[in-house]
Structure formats: C-alpha cells, structure tokens
Design a protein around this nucleic acid. Structure first.
Length: 463
DNA sequence: TTCGAGTTGAATGT
DNA sequence: ACATTCAACTCGAA
C-alpha cells in the first residue's frame, strides 16, 4: 500500500495519477477501454501460473475489442522462457548450469531514466485528478487494523527503495559491495547484515536491471567476489528460481511437481503451530520466528535455519506449510523464490545433501555467541548467562530462577530432542530418496529404466 | 557409466 | 584457524 501511495504521489507530480480499478478484470477493463477510448494496453509480464491465465484472458479480450496489447519482461533480467529455450527446453537445475546458459545470451538491457515530465496530452483534468472513486485502497478496505501493525522497518515505495539502494550500493560502500559473500553474512545480527533490497525488488520499487548495472559499475576495475556468493550472484539466484518456477508445473507443491522429491511428511498441527508461533523451546528458532512476524524480514540463513528445523531437520512437517507462513509474513514473499527455497531447504529439489543439517543450537552461536539476538527478540530469556542462552533447558533450576524464567513454565521445553530426531529424519530421507529412484526415474528413457533398475538400484534399498 | 562438484553443517580432531 | 570424518544425495559433463 505504501508502494502504491508513493507511485501515485510521483505520478501526481507529473500531472497524472494512479487509478486502482476494483473488480473482475474482464468487466472492469471492458468498461474503461470504452470510457477512456483505449487504443493500446501494456503490462509487465508475470510468470506466476494464476497471472499467466489472467493475462492470457485479458490479452485475448483486448484484441477482440481492437485494443493492441504489448507486454514487456522487466521484473527479471532475463525472460524465463528464453533461458529454457536456450537450454533445449528445460530449466537448468543447478546455478552453474544456469550461468553457462545465460553466458550464451545477451546482457540485460540498461534501465531507462524515469520521465521528468509528461506531454500535455498525457496530463489529466482536474476532475480526473480529484475523483476519489478509483483511489488506492485503504487499510480498512483490505481488513487490516492499523493499530495491530508493528513498526514499519522497511517502508514500501520507490522513494524508500532508492534511498536504500543508493545507501547500500554507493561508491562509498564499494569496498563492502566488492567483498560481499552471502555465506559470510550473519543471520542473527541486530541490524541486517545484507542489503534488504528484496522487498523492493519484489514489488517493483527498484528494478533488477538497475541493481545489475550498478554492481557492474562498482565492480569494474577492482577485484570483487563472484557468483554464487556475490551480490551479483544474489540476483542470479532470483533469476534461477524464476526460470525453474515458470517452466515447472505445480512448482509450489510436492504433488505432481516433477522437480520435487516425494517425501511422506507428518501432519502434526501442534508442531506446526509451535513453529509458527515461536514456541518450539529453541531460543534461536523462536527468536527468528518472532523477528519474522514483527519485522517482516529475516536473513537468508535464518530462513535456512527455521526451514530446515520445520522440515527434514526436526519437525518433519511439509515444506508447503512453511511456505504458507512465509507467504503471509515476509514482506519480500515471492512465489517463485519462496517455493524454490523451501524445496532447497527440505532437500526436495536443487539441494540433495540431506545429511547436512542445521543445528538449532550450534548454528547461531557461530555469529552471535553471547545470544544478543535472542535477548532482543525473546526478552523473557534475556537474563540467562551466555552459556545457556541457546539451550536454557540445560541450565540448573537455580540459574533459571535467577534469570527469572523457569523452563516449562515461563518458556517452553524443547519440542524435540534435536540429536535424536535429526538422525531419525536422515534415515527417513534416505528411504524417501531410495523410493524416488524406483518410482520416478526422471530423465532415463523407460527402456533404460527397466534395464538397469532391478539389479543395481534395488539392492541398495534392501540394504 | 563414472566422476567431480554442489552458495552458506556439525563434531572432533590437530 | 584449519583438516578430517560423518555416510553418501543429484546433476551434468566426459
């Protein structure tokens, strides 16, 4: 909503405005095509399945009514279908392969400057500018109670986006940009250790092209980090998931999704609720889930930590459930990236080394040994000594009482024994992988499959 | 068919 | 601070 307001303000500065039309696209558009005497309509291409269907229908209808349609790829650096075509009809499933494909393509085009003025004919009349019928929706209209909202740490809109963009990717900050390596940034610093440009990229407040070319400018003539860990690499990951999502049916679910491993996840409402509501009893996990709900943003590695915990690591709940929670709470929630990353973390697709598991106790200690992050987001644990802040249930009762927080009363006991369940779950992953090999051979032709499976692979399952 | 590599693990050693 | 082990996946190139 803030993004819409900011856009509307910018347009009004040029003598135009934003009209937010409410209703069924077919009905609403037919009406305005007539009243506004529309000759041509353009929009940004959208690869999400519902959008593809919607846009196809609008396009067909427009052309029937004699309205010319022209669409553009601007949300991503590359058009997903162009990449798929270049890769002989399939989406690359590794980033290395993805990079080799785009290396054969033209570089992303440079962004155009925003217009400084509009032609006289494009400006609106006073009555059109002051009519409130098609104004931006209010919070009330979308059933949000303003007093229930937390502080807006990352306000929407192009103005905010450019402010952040120019701060993080400034010449003064070039050394940081050039040495940026994502795995070395901290998931649990008190202030974000990354750019937090993702919400702005998601809503189109800043363009990936702008970011791409700004990085080129800052990289040129100096030594700098490389994909996949560099900032440039972060943009490529976004492209990678957009490409996979655009060309894979049922990308946001396990069933009938050809890239997704079929895993018999449990359905435990209590475990899911404990994770969602930040009461797993693991302070590192609960602090992250608290930050997610309060701020609408958490670091990428924090997402890894809680996603692994919910799925293959500890709770053995479906990644689709986690995806729903992220979709609701993340400011940067993006359909393609959300699904892709949940599959990655649950070792359902893209990533397969399921025996590499994040510890809900050990991982956070590496970057925040004294637990400042936990103390910030879970203040009732704040008085625990460093030694116990990540595993307060191990503190002697006297220490718990001194900290003013008795485990089991004031803060939950750990929902699982990580050492035990993570090992059990690795065994379940092993079974799911073996089952997948027999049930769903991906690339082998059927004849090859029948020839080789019985002897070589079946024996492995028996073991 | 084989083999090397894969954005970001943990525990235990030196 | 760095190396090894753990137990061993899939993708894609050769």
């Amino acid at each position: 909503m803030q993004s819409l307001q900011d856009l509307d303000t910018s347009l009004r500065g040029l003598g135009s405005r934003l009209f937010v039309l409410r209703g069924e696209p077919g009905e609403v558009l037919t009406k305005v095509w007539e009243t506004w005497d529309v000759k041509m309509m353009t929009w940004e291409e959208d690869t999400e399945p519902d959008a593809v269907i919607r846009d196809e229908a609008v396009k067909e209808m427009a052309e029937r009514k004699g309205v010319t349609v022209e669409t553009f790829c601007s949300h991503t650096l590359y058009r997903p279908e162009d990449i798929v075509a270049k890769n002989k009809g399939t989406a690359p499933l590794t980033l290395v392969k993805f990079q080799s494909v785009i290396a054969m393509m033209e570089k992303p085009s440079k962004p155009l400057d925003a217009p400084q003025s509009l032609e006289e004919a494009s400006r609106l009349s006073v009555s059109e500018l002051s009519d409130t019928k098609d104004d931006i929706p209010t919070l009330k209209e979308v059933n949000v109670v303003e007093s229930e909202l937390h502080e807006s740490k990352f306000p929407g809109g192009e103005t905010e986006a450019l402010k952040r963009f120019n701060e993080k990717l400034s010449t003064e900050n070039a050394a940081w940009v050039r040495t940026f390596e994502k795995p070395l940034t901290s998931p649990n610093s008190l202030e974000p250790s990354t750019t937090v440009l993702s919400p702005y990229l998601k809503f189109g407040c800043v363009s990936p092209r702008m970011m791409y070319w700004r990085l080129v400018k800052l990289y040129t003539g100096a030594k700098h980090s490389q994909p996949p860990v560099s900032l440039h690499g972060q943009l490529l990951w976004r492209e990678f998931y957009y490409c996979a999502a655009a060309s894979t049916p049922n990308f946001s679910r396990m069933e009938d999704n050809p890239v997704c491993r079929q895993i018999p996840w449990d359905k435990d409402e209590d475990k899911l609720a404990a994770w969602t509501e930040a009461r797993t009893g693991f302070p590192y996990i609960d602090a992250i889930m608290t930050q997610l709900r309060r701020d609408g943003w958490i670091h990428h590695l924090a997402r890894h930590s809680v996603a692994c915990f919910l799925t293959r690591g500890d709770l053995w709940q479906s990644w689709e459930k986690g995806q729903e929670v992220f979709e609701e709470l993340l400011l940067d929630a993006d359909w393609s990236l959300n699904a892709g990353n949940w599959m990655w973390l649950s070792a359902s697709a893209f990533f397969h080394q399921y025996w590499k598991c994040y510890s809900p106790v050990a991982f956070g200690k590496k970057t925040d040994p004294s637990g400042e992050y936990i103390r910030k987001y879970l203040p009732h644990l704040a008085k625990f000594p460093d030694k116990f802040i990540y595993q307060p249930w191990e503190a002697p009762l006297a220490v718990q009482k001194a900290a003013g927080c008795v485990i089991g009363q004031d803060y939950p006991r750990p929902i699982v024994d990580h050492a035990i369940v993570s090992k059990e779950n690795m065994g379940r992953m092993k079974v799911a992988c073996a089952a997948g090999k027999v049930a769903a051979p991906k690339k082998n032709k059927l004849e090859n499959y029948f020839k080789k499976e019985p002897k070589a692979k079946k024996r492995k399952i028996d073991e």
